[in-house]
Write a protein that binds this DNA or RNA. Structure first.
Length: 595
RNA sequence: GCACCCAUAGUUCAAUGGAUAGAAUUACGGAUUCCGGUUCCGUCGAUUGGGGUUCGACUCCCCAUGGGUGUACCA
């Protein structure tokens, strides 16, 4: 039992005995005492003053006295207004620390047979251009969320839905045929997804030129866009694709394969993966079927022009198109089909979609439609909605060419990390390979930490320079703290100092603060899982690193001559390094032994 | 027009309805010169405005202002 649990159930018992009020221990909600007051744990007594018919101070004093008399872990207390500050018996913290050190999976709940199965969808790229900064936030959030949910005892299936069909792919294919002279990733040395992206840009350039030309001849913009021969050709290609034209299909397969090879490289460098990948080319027909089924059931209706719609006005939304008048499916139809396949493949208890907040409406509608179509889980699907990433210079705009490419950005971060560590001169004794590995860990750690430390819902500004600062709330700061701890532990091991029993040592203020911080880790993981928030983990790890630095500044470890005290401190170093590594792993961030 | 989201120090971010709203960064001052430099301490500085609920509101409700996103044949 953790200290919080002990206090909670003891207070609940005290309230029952003193005032005959039933209190659920979970509702006691102990919190760490603010540092300006004496004590370790604080309980707010306001909720019981009415039942007790006494002043808050009196209630605090009575409960405090009861705790000192009946709960051995409680040494003393004081009351300020309605706040009961509890002092824990100092040596009691040692047993807390011992338990943390002994628990190899500290903070993680085991997966059991009756664990819930959660499917997390993230990344979900189009196959016509490479991944950019916005995708990075998506992918890192999805991966981290999956790791957190696993640590909370869930079975997790990480999934990706690849949008591999549609007019945008045809644009790239058409441009490749027209202007790229059979260029391949091998022949050009260009990464596959980037090559396809170049095709897409080329299409757009020529298309715009065409539209401008037609407008000069007197057409309106709309007319010109509809009359553009390039666009007509792309549409024709899409039609042939839908008809399974062998030539179009084989070109499509070849070019998509290039893109997938490119994406795989990017995912690998990011350190993320998927358990199951779905392709829209395989799911969109399923959705159509499901919609027609809904039509039979009367959940949808058909208009005169043949298009199929859902009337959501009763739910406060509009009418939603599900099949065009020509019978083809739209985005929503595909998502319905994908959902159907997923639930056929897995016994999913909960479905989480990691998708940007510009699609809030889409998922509101999807949830309703799935529910109407008879999917029991439709109503409580989770849209893990996140805000967009801006740069210090402003928003990314593809038209202005200010989109930050994911591969470029990762390479830059790693280069910067290498430069920083070289300029700091801590490169002696390391092979070039080791230095590369460290630069990779630090550069990507900086990027990931910066993107994950912010509340996902909010738009954020990514500042590359700030993110890699070795000071402040950054990944490298935490990694550095970790590396220093590991150095201390290595030196202790080299010196061969035997571990001594420290159970009788009275830990000092800084030591208690650190133990208390460590002990709160499992609660933070659980809360991060409940509220789907990697940011909670990030900020916790940062606070832990700072807490450790304060302890480390005040308390000598290797130079401490008392064996028991030194053992306590080494145990603190060990536990801290492990919790840092564990928390960072939940964020998908590695920690280096040296840097 | 309608719907949803956001608004906190100069800046970037925190704060399960709890105490005097925390950090980081910037600027200035100090400690340590040590187990790893990038450690530690201090000073300056903020809840967009107005109502309401509550013992207690950055947090919940209403109104206003400012910003973002979406809104029936793009994905």
């Amino acid at each position: 039992m953790s200290i919080d649990q002990i206090i909670s159930s003891a207070v609940a018992k005290a309230v029952k005995e003193l005032y005959n009020v039933d209190v659920a221990p979970e509702s006691v909600g102990p919190q760490p005492t603010r540092k300006e007051f004496e004590g370790n744990v604080t309980v707010v007594v306001f909720p019981w003053v009415k039942a007790a018919r006494k002043a808050p101070e009196a209630v605090g004093n009575e409960i405090g006295a009861w705790l000192v008399a009946n709960e051995p872990a409680v040494k003393a207390f004081n009351v300020v207004k309605g706040f009961l500050n509890i002092v824990i018996e100092p040596t009691y913290w040692n047993t807390v620390l011992e338990r943390i050190v002994a628990d190899k999976d500290f903070g993680r709940r085991p997966v059991t047979d009756d664990s819930k199965l959660v499917m997390v969808e993230y990344s979900s790229p189009n196959t016509n251009k490479p991944l950019h900064l916005g995708h990075l936030r998506n992918i890192l959030l999805g991966y981290s969320l999956s790791e957190i949910l696993k640590a909370c005892g869930n079975k997790v299936v990480k999934t990706n839905i690849v949008n591999d069909r549609g007019i945008h792919i045809c644009k790239s294919m058409l441009a490749w045929k027209k202007w790229f002279n059979g260029a391949t990733p091998e022949s050009t040395g260009i990464k596959g997804d980037h090559l396809i992206g170049d095709c897409y840009v080329a299409f757009d350039k020529h298309y715009k030129a065409e539209v401008a030309e037609l407008m000069e001849k007197g057409m309106t913009k709309e007319e010109a866009e509809a009359a553009s021969p390039l666009m007509l050709e792309a549409r024709e290609m899409l039609r042939r694709w839908e008809d399974k034209d062998p030539e179009v299909r084989s070109l499509w397969e070849m070019m998509n394969a290039w893109v997938y090879a490119g994406f795989d490289e990017t995912y690998a460098r990011m350190g993320v993966d998927f358990d199951k990948i779905y392709y829209e080319s395989e799911t969109y027909l399923e959705g159509k079927e499901k919609v027609l089924e809904g039509l039979d059931k009367g959940v949808m209706y058909r208009r005169e022009d043949g298009s199929v719609w859902a009337d959501l006005t009763a739910d406060g939304l509009d009418h939603k198109l599900l099949l065009r008048s020509d019978g083809t499916s739209v985005y929503m139809t595909q998502d319905i089909g994908t959902a159907k396949l997923r639930f056929r493949d897995y016994p999913i208890d909960k479905m989480i979609y990691v998708v940007g907040n510009e699609q809030n409406y889409h998922f509101q509608v999807l949830s309703l439609l799935l529910d109407k179509l008879g999917f029991s889980w439709g109503k409580d699907l989770v849209h893990f909605s996140y805000g967009m990433v801006e740069l210090p210079e402003g928003r990314m705009k593809s038209r202005e060419g200010t989109v930050v490419d994911a591969d470029d950005l990762m390479a830059e971060m790693v280069d910067t990390a290498r430069e920083v560590s070289e300029s700091l001169g801590k490169t002696d004794g390391l092979t070039p390979e080791e230095m590369d590995a460290i630069a990779e860990i630090v550069g990507l750690g900086a990027l990931k930490y910066f993107l994950l430390k912010v509340d996902p819902r909010k738009n954020m500004t990514f500042n590359p320079k700030e993110s890699i600062d070795f000071n402040g709330n950054t990944g490298p700061f935490i990694q550095y703290t970790y590396a220093r701890i590991r150095s201390v532990l290595r030196r202790a091991a080299e010196a061969g100092t035997a571990a001594a029993d420290y159970s009788a040592v009275e830990p000092c203020e800084k030591e208690i603060a650190l133990i208390q911080r460590l002990a709160s880790y499992p609660g933070v993981v659980a809360e991060a899982g409940r509220s789907y928030s990697p940011a909670l983990i990030a900020n916790y790890v940062y606070d832990l690193a700072k807490e450790y630095n304060q302890f480390y500044h005040d308390c000598p470890v290797l130079r401490e001559s008392d064996d028991a005290v030194r053992s306590l401190r080494l145990a603190l170093c060990d536990a801290t390094s492990r919790v840092i590594a564990s928390g960072m792993a939940l964020l998908g961030i590695k920690v280096p032994e040296r840097m």
